[in-house]
Design a protein around this nucleic acid. Structure first.
Lengths: 248, 248
DNA sequence: ATGCATTTGTTCGTATGTATG
DNA sequence: GCATACATACGAACAAATGCA
């Protein structure tokens, strides 16, 4: 019910400090004080412009600053949102999905997207050290933390080397337990290759991320204690909700 | 409906992902994995069409994509050639820019984009373990391999802890030598955090990458042998020309 | 599938204040 | 005083992404 120009919020007039900077500070204090819930939506740029009695450009300049500081994220067509704490994916030799999530005090869950046998493409074959076209088992899994999707993982297993892996995956619906069932009590990450690319429409929908945000795209090779390759995985994580951290 | 008798290579069937895109990914993995030598010639379009069991038009669409990404170059009447600037960035405790480039048999060079003193933003302050607003020196550098830009790095140094770092950087125009000059004979990478985001127009122009391709965005903390933080760095790499590889 | 409303992203143009020489 | 450069701020219009009916 703001009348046409009247009820602009009083911003502390400070000598020489730019308007947009004072607006950024005002919003920052609301965020860090907890007055705005993490993940919550900020008012629209137009609404903020009305509230502070400035042009939309000025608000945008302030939001840009907050975004640069990582306090908010801005999504075209949707709005601006208070940043949630990001999930660091600590890459270590023995990183497991559910342990990762629980270390962040969230509840891991998941959904099997696909389970089938197929012939290795050149990429998968080279990752597993098999010849092109060898039989592999694909286990595709959507990972969630507190119900929010945070990863799509495609796990490839050498069918010949791991007899019964298909049935084990169907029964267990989880990688670590299925590997245990076929005699792999433990496995280690040998290498991780990280790049980024834009999501396909399906990936964006599954991960509940805008199509304009890149995915982290990680290829892993896992070996058993003897050094034999037991799995080749391709995982996709939505940025900036997930970040990959290497700590030697 | 497989082609006339020939054994077409199995391509990972992914829901809704176009054929040409999957072919492009297959070729991309062969290139970045090093299975195809840099500068080497790809099979002819006809040969690729036969291998994947598709029409030559479909292969051409895939090659066009790879060319746009800078992974190959196509020369009329001669063939397609693997680009020579695809680099794996192997993350180790003592990764140095010029050594990284030289390990790929390229000539490292660089250009200083900026050198100035400023007050630490919250992100930089937390990376360096300083209080907000402490004086830091920013050294911004464009890295090139054989003349092609492959990184933008922003190096932040604690001004109070490293007396004379500003002058050392101005004189040496390089991080390692400047640190030597202020008494840091050696430094180690403590942690690396990787995420991805879209480039700004300036970043895209500097890195000679399309604005539609994400950047890998890496934050590093470097410490001296006593464990004191001496540098906080933010590096931006163009995908897929650069990939980050972690091998424990 | 299509169109519409909402919201952010981009690009014009204009005006003002401040610092510099 | 004057010219110039730069940052700030406002206004308008359109483009692009999203969500919904």
């Amino acid at each position: 019910m703001t009348p046409t120009g009247a009820a602009a919020e009083a911003l502390l007039a400070r000598d020489g400090v730019a308007l947009w900077r004072r607006i950024a500070e005002a919003l920052q204090s609301e965020i860090v004080s907890g007055a705005r819930a993490a993940g919550g939506r900020l008012p629209t740029e137009a609404a903020l412009a009305a509230r502070f009695g400035v042009n939309r450009h000025t608000v945008r300049r302030a939001l840009e600053e907050l975004s640069r500081m990582g306090l908010i994220r801005v999504e075209q067509g949707r709005g601006s949102f208070v940043a949630e704490d990001v999930l660091d994916y600590i890459v270590g030799p023995r990183t497991r999905f559910s342990e990762w999530i629980r270390r962040h005090n969230r509840e891991p869950s998941g959904r099997v997207l696909d389970l089938r046998e197929e012939e290795a493409s050149s990429r998968v074959a080279s990752g597993l050290g098999l010849r092109n076209g060898a039989k592999v088992v694909l286990f595709e899994h959507l990972g969630l933390a507190d119900g929010r999707p945070i990863s799509i993982a495609s796990h490839y297993f050498p069918a010949a080397r791991l007899r019964g892996i298909f049935e084990a995956l169907r029964a267990e619906q989880a990688v670590t337990r299925a590997l245990e069932r076929v005699g792999i009590a433990d496995y280690l990450r040998q290498s991780t290759r990280v790049t980024a690319r834009m999501p396909t429409p399906t990936e964006a929908a599954l991960l509940e991320t805008p199509r304009s945000r890149p995915l982290l795209y990680c290829e892993n090779v896992n070996v058993d204690r003897a050094g034999t390759i037991v799995e080749f995985g391709i995982a996709r994580y939505p940025t900036p909700r997930v970040q990959v951290v290497f700590e030697p």
